[in-house]
Simulated scan of single mutants.
Amino acid sequence: MRNGLLLALVLLASASPAPAQSVRAGIDAWSAGKPDEAVAIWRPLAAKGQADAAFNLGQAYKLGRGVPADLAEAQRYYEQAAKAGHLEAQTSLGLLLFQNGNRTAALRWLKAASDSGEPRAMLVYGTALFNGDGVAEDRVRAYALVSRAAAQGLAPARATLDEMNQLIPLEERQKGVAMAQRLVNSGGPSAKPTKTAPAKVAAAPAAKPPVPGTPGPAASGAFRIQLGAFGTPAAAQRLFGQLGASLRGARMTLVPSGTMTRLQAGPYATRADAAAACAALRPQPCFPVPAR
């Protein structure tokens, strides 16, 4: 149950002498296939504290477009934008930290974005609440958050909600729906977020083609990726089938955990390879785990 740059297109200013370049000018350069030019526009704006520019630079470093791929730099720019209240940056930072094993900081940022209604953050933080994974278990709030993410059209959230419907008693689901409605009415978490930037990461489908250059699974290795915890092995197997080619031939492993079944795939030679595989599956909740 438990991981692109989609930028709005705008017209550039005329060729006459113009004021300082804007974030949108960088967006247009990026969309025109000129990432070097986009980065050159965004960098001084980010240095002046422009959150949209910092977020876009984080995306550029994560993707390795216009600059060498550098996750440490991506994290630095995401954090700058996140501290300024940029919702997509808070979510992207939380996911990156989660994949790097810093779950405490990751959940803090994901909660902040979830509290502002960012759908990917609501899905991941809601999943953590459901599993009691790094936070106290709260299935009612988990259901409220995931249901609101699903209502905003996030496909993995709809799949997760279907699984929750099989695992959570009707009374708790009803409480979750009521909580979601209260949060919407109060403008709190689950309310539709106010966009703080013209640049936005698109919500990816549950299954998508692998990102070129992403390390694939190895014949043997010390790591796997974990894709969620399910009430039945059949539910885990369904998600594995839905992810299809995105897993690039990774083998499925079902790990019993109390009354749940954890879905893992791999193996991967290194933690970095596993983290890269998770990044290619985003926004599917995913994190590296040791292969035991």
Rank of each mutant, 00 (worst) to 15 (best):
R173F: 00
A279T: 09
P198D: 09
G49F: 10
L247Q: 07
A81F: 09
I168W: 00
A229D: 00
D138A: 11
A229N: 00
P233I: 11
P189I: 04
L167N: 09
M1N: 03
R173V: 00
I41F: 08
N131Q: 09
A275I: 08
M164V: 11
G4K: 01
G33S: 08
N165C: 02
G134H: 08
G244H: 11
N102W: 01
A128G: 04
Q284M: 13
T259E: 06
A142I: 10
G258I: 10
L170G: 06
P205V: 02
A222G: 12
A25H: 07
L7A: 10
A47V: 01
S190I: 05
D133E: 14
P119D: 00
M260F: 12
Y78G: 04
A38I: 05
P256N: 09
A32Q: 15
V135I: 10
G153E: 14
L170T: 13
S16T: 15
A280V: 03
A204D: 04
L71Y: 12
Q21T: 04
A72C: 10
S14G: 14
R238Y: 11
Q80A: 11
A84D: 09
Y268E: 07
R248L: 10
T196L: 14
G266S: 07
H86S: 04
R282H: 14
G266Q: 05
D70S: 09
Q181T: 08
K175W: 01
L93R: 00
T196V: 12
R182N: 07
E118C: 06
N102G: 02
T270M: 04
R65V: 13
A199V: 09
G231W: 01
L183Y: 09
D273S: 13
L9R: 06
